[in-house]
Amino acid sequence: MDVALATLLSPIILFFVLGMGAALLRSQMSVPEAFAKGIAIYLMMAIGLKGGVGMSEAEMSLNIILVLVAGVVLSFVLPLIAYACLRATSRLDNTNAAAAAAHYGSISIVTFVAATEAVRLSGLDAGGHLVAVAALMETPAIITALFLASRGRKADRVAGSEQGELIREVFLNASVVVLVGALVIGWIAGKEGTASIEPFFVAPFQGVLCLFLLDMGLNAGRGLRQGWRSLGPATVAFGLYMPLISAVIATGVAMLIAMPTGDAALLITLAASASYIAVPAAMRLALPEAKPSIYLTLSLGITFPFNVTLGIPIYIWLASLVTA
């Protein structure tokens, strides 16, 4: 309980709540767009480097490989469950349900970063390879969603579309390139090699994260304010119960492969999080008929705030229940 309260009352979460509250109250406050994008790149570089350095210090074991495989399998499978839930409970059509489902198989790197801080606050350790799991979980969900959307529908070629543009968007989007790139750089350079850049990437990290979560709060609040009309009660409920379903499944996986508590908490968080960077962009190219006001409001306006405030303490608790 103390850990849950400490997470909820940490400056990171409080700044998020401030941003979301300000946006919902129609404050004109905003973080300049280019600055916010710069911060996002900084955070992904910092988390990638940290993960890479962690991986350089650990031996590649069968357990690590199992965790990487588990992440990929979860990303492939979770959209199937999300799609079934949406089709059974909401009025969303095939395309919109598939597009929304893709977001719930992919991951939110900001939720992951917030969870990393919460895990640290709880006195737990997490392996650097979880950053690699995050990167691996970004894209398989998109493939599942495209398969779901294509069933019983003849795909027409969109005017001006080019071969390979979707693959470029999916595998070479900014978050994948920066995260994987920084991970590899951290892995190659190791602790000694990254010592000179540590003052830039380690000490200011928490403060920059506060700034970023303030902006994310503003984004989530504005998204919710502008898009809530697109969602019915069943769709809103989905945004709250789907992360919990994913978390329970990932908890089972973590127990099965005997993950340490800190690692399990992060895997559960990754499974429970919903993408709002890589997948929306891919969906605009692959399924342009799907309404962004539905899937973005769900992932950014409902699931993201739920995860960073209430979800993360629940996921750490779930991990502590089933791991040593």
Partner: peptide
């Protein structure tokens, strides 16, 4: 500035 992915 609503959407960090800039997809909207």
């Amino acid at each position: 500035d609503t959407d960090i992915s800039a997809s909207q």
